[in-house]
C-alpha cells in the first residue's frame, strides 16, 4: 500500500483485497483452516493462496481428521501431500480416525525432525507399524497412542529409538484378562527420560508400577485409568507431583492433549521476537 504522506482525507476505509494481505497474515489464517481444507480448497482459490499454502513452514504441524475428508479426496493421499510439502520440516502430526502402517512409515521416512506424534483412533495402524516408524524418529518427544495397541517389543523399540521421549500416552485397552507387568517393565527399562505418562487400560500390578517409578526417575506426572490390578496406597504419592489415578474421562484428556499439540506447533510457528522457539508439551501442561 502506498501511503502518500500528505493526503488530507484518504479514502482508505476499506482494507486491502484479501489476496493482497501480507503473506504472513494469509498464512496465519490458512493455518487455522487446517491441513485438509488448505489442500482441498485454499490452494484452488488463487495463485497467491496457493503459493502461501506451499511454503514448508505451513506444514510443520499437521492435524488430519478422517471426518474432514470428503470424496473424492483420500485421507492417506492428503497426508502424504502434506508430508511432501513439509519438505522434512514436520514437527508434529496428529492422525485421527484413519491411516495405515504404510502411511505412518511414509511419514516417518520423510520427517526426521518429528517431535510429536499422535495416533487417535487409527484402528488400522498396528504396534508393528509404530515399531517400524519410530526407528526413523530419533527426535520424538511426545507419543500419543489411542487405540493402537503396542506390545512389549514395540515399547522397547520406541524406547531405544527415541531417547528424547518425555511424554507417553497409551490409551489402548488391553482386552486380555489377568495380570501382566510386561509392558510396565518395558516402559520402566526403556523409557528412562519420561516426564509424563498416561496409561489407560493396562493389566499391570504394583510390581509394574513400582518398576516404572524406579526406572523413570524424571517422572512428574502420572495419570492412570482402568488399571484395575494396581493397588495404589501410598506407593507413588510422595514422588509424583501430578498424580491422577482414576481419570474419569478419556474424551476430556484426548481433546486436552490434542490442543496442547496444536499449541506447541503454534508456538513453533510464531518464532517472532518474544516467542520461545521451543516449547515442549510438558511445559505447556503446567
Amino acid at each position: 500500500m502506498a501511503s502518500s504522506s500528505s493526503n488530507s482525507i484518504e479514502e482508505e476505509a476499506t482494507p486491502p483485497p484479501w489476496e493482497k494481505l501480507p503473506r504472513e497474515i494469509t498464512a496465519a489464517i490458512l493455518l487455522k483452516l487446517g491441513a485438509v481444507e488448505i489442500l482441498t480448497t485454499a490452494v484452488e482459490v488463487c495463485t497467491t493462496w496457493r503459493s502461501v499454502s506451499m511454503q514448508p513452514s505451513m506444514w510443520r504441524y499437521v492435524r488430519m481428521e478422517k471426518s474432514d475428508v470428503e470424496w473424492p479426496h483420500d485421507f492417506d493421499d492428503l497426508c502424504r501431500r502434506a508430508v511432501d510439502l513439509s519438505q522434512g520440516q514436520l514437527i508434529g502430526i496428529t492422525l485421527k480416525g484413519s491411516g495405515t502402517n504404510d502411511l505412518l512409515l511414509y511419514i516417518s521416512q520423510r520427517s526426521g525432525q518429528l517431535k510429536h506424534l499422535a495416533l487417535v483412533n487409527c484402528y488400522d495402524i498396528t504396534g508393528e507399524g509404530v515399531k517400524e516408524a519410530v526407528k526413523n524418529l530419533p527426535l520424538l518427544e511426545n507419543l500419543y497412542l489411542n487405540h493402537t495397541y503396542i506390545d512389549v517389543e514395540a515399547i522397547e523399540t520406541v524406547g531405544r529409538s527415541c531417547p528424547l521421549l518425555k511424554f507417553f500416552i497409551l490409551t489402548s485397552f488391553d482386552w486380555r484378562s489377568g495380570e501382566s507387568d510386561e509392558e510396565a517393565l518395558a516402559i520402566a527399562q526403556n523409557m528412562p527420560g519420561l516426564v509424563e505418562l498416561r496409561i489407560f487400560g493396562n493389566r499391570m500390578t504394583n510390581v509394574g508400577l513400582k518398576a516404572i517409578l524406579e526406572g523413570c526417575l524424571h517422572l512428574k506426572s502420572l495419570y492412570m485409568r482402568r488399571c484395575h490390578n494396581v493397588n495404589f496406597g501410598k506407593l507413588c504419592s510422595e514422588r509424583i507431583k501430578d498424580l491422577k489415578l482414576d481419570v474419569d474421562s478419556i474424551k476430556k484428556y484426548e481433546e486436552e492433549i490434542l490442543c496442547l499439540f496444536a499449541k506447541c506447533s503454534c508456538a513453533l510457528l510464531r518464532s517472532r521476537s518474544d516467542a520461545k522457539s521451543e516449547v515442549s508439551l510438558t511445559e505447556l501442561l503446567r
Partner: peptide, 21 residues
Amino acid sequence: AQVMEKKSVGWVRRKFGIEND
C-alpha cells in the same frame, strides 16, 4: 478461517472478493 470452513472454492472467492487468477 471459520468463515470459509466447509465452503466451496467459488464461495470463498466471492466472500473474500478474490479474483480467480
